[in-house]
């Protein structure tokens, strides 16, 4: 394993009871790489990234995160002890589909809780860090609100701040926008894009194909309990090599509501791939204008 590898999966199998969710999943994620995991519902995408910080266990194979084996399924390889796992989790940020903010705490307290209670930051240090992060996502004016007073998009951006406040080395995003109204998706994606530009290592389960194409370096297509295809984002999304990936992309792309779909030809089958034209922008929404310059770098 090279030093540059942040997360590595080798031959991972996950079952729920007798049902195999996925099998033989191998994947390496390098520093500052953005990996998008796509695929049909039920393919185990969320379960897969939840295995990385061991919110789910698995039945076979090895997952290493930041140099630690997160769960020993091989005989003679003990799992991380509880405190070691906890330590590791502080370095792996997680953003959930359902936000999971703490409803009894204000926005500020949500972001400050773990830095104070886990990392032992002082109130002042934690406040400063939280404010800086909330500023970054454009929510500092909402710092004293409670989560239920926020829109879904705002809640998710707070949740991202909460994870970032621990200064993680890698971020896991579990369908961060799939619970959001379409008009709120953009702000959350803008935040994630910014992290990508800052060089954050990220693994992102998403249904936003346009976004995956734009921000991810690598796309992993999961289907039928396997990795159907994996490779550079543009190549996989524009010209998938495998039949399984192609049929999935053909089904989702015309319906994707990311804003840039109008750019996609409506007869992908003519091209041997679903994405025919260049789709480098996400429909030129004003949401992106802030990062317009940096976007060119991608």
């Amino acid at each position: 394993m090279s030093n540059d590898v942040v997360v590595e999966l080798e031959g991972v199998r996950k079952c729920f009871g007798p049902r195999v969710i996925f099998d033989d999943v191998s994947l390496s994620v390098h520093r500052s790489e953005v990996v998008a995991v796509i695929g049909p519902s039920g393919a185990g995408k969320s379960t897969l990234i939840r295995c990385i910080n061991r919110l789910n266990t698995f039945e076979r194979g090895v997952i290493r995160a930041l140099g630690h084996e997160v769960y020993g399924t091989e005989e003679g390889k003990p799992a991380l002890k509880r405190d070691e796992l906890r330590e590791l989790r502080t370095e792996i940020g997680m953003v959930f589909q359902t936000f999971n903010l703490f409803p009894h705490l204000t926005v500020m307290k949500n972001v400050m809780l773990a830095p104070q209670r886990v990392k032992g930051l002082s109130e002042a240090q934690a406040t400063a860090r939280a404010l800086e992060l909330l500023e970054m996502v454009g929510l500092s004016h909402r710092k004293d609100a409670h989560p239920r007073q926020l829109s879904g998009g705002e809640q998710q951006r707070v949740a991202i701040c909460r994870a970032l406040a621990m200064e993680p080395k890698v971020m896991l995003f579990d369908e961060p926008t799939s619970m959001l109204d379409p008009e709120l998706v953009g702000d959350v994606l803008a935040t994630i894009r910014r992290l990508a530009l800052d060089g954050m290592t990220m693994i992102l389960v998403t249904h936003e194909m346009m976004f995956a194409k734009e921000v991810a370096n690598t796309v992993v297509v999961m289907a039928d309990g396997r990795i159907a295809e994996m490779g550079p984002a543009r190549q996989v999304l524009s010209a998938p090599k495998t039949e399984r990936a192609r049929s999935f992309l053909e089904r989702v792309l015309p319906h994707t509501d990311g804003g840039g779909v109008t750019d996609v030809r409506t007869h992908p089958q003519d091209q041997g791939g679903p994405i025919a034209g260049p789709i480098d922008s996400i429909g030129g929404s004003a949401l992106w204008s802030r990062e317009a310059d940096e976007e060119e770098l991608l």
Partner: peptide, 10 residues
């Protein structure tokens, strides 16, 4: 809620 606290390392 439990998962969020676990993921944060509490």
């Amino acid at each position: 809620q439990h998962e969020a606290t676990a993921a944060l390392g509490l």
